[in-house]
């Protein structure tokens, strides 16, 4: 659970999480945008199916992998959210066609 500081400045960005409309702040990474929207777990692991959420926020742990605009295994913390972006949580391995 995270919340935005009341005076945090910036433009609002509309995007979707698993098809549901969501809002982020301009400059948010996808991982930050998920956290800001109360989505703590963004994927399940390919090995045991355990849920995972962002851990390092700096591109080293790869726990924040999500599907972005149809492409799987994207590092959510390394990509900025943009208007209309389609973010999907991921189950297990990346599928071959995405």
């Amino acid at each position: 659970m995270f919340q935005r500081l009341p005076d945090a400045g910036g433009e609002r960005v509309s995007f979707t999480i698993d098809g549901q409309p969501a809002e982020a702040l301009s400059g948010d990474s996808v991982a930050a945008a998920l956290i800001a929207n109360g989505v703590g777990a963004c994927r399940t692991t390919p090995v045991s199916g355990a849920p995972r959420g962002p851990y390092c926020m700096m591109g080293v742990c790869f726990d924040c992998l999500v599907t972005i605009d149809g492409t799987g295994n994207q590092q959510g913390c390394q990509i900025r959210v943009h208007p209309g972006m389609r973010v999907e949580t991921q189950n297990g391995k990346r599928e071959i066609e995405r």
Partner: peptide
């Protein structure tokens, strides 16, 4: 989920005011 590095939380604060 919900367990993170303190550095990760600091990045969320700096970049997103979270």
């Amino acid at each position: 989920p919900g367990v993170m590095g303190a550095g990760a939380a600091q990045i969320l604060l700096k970049t997103s005011g979270l």
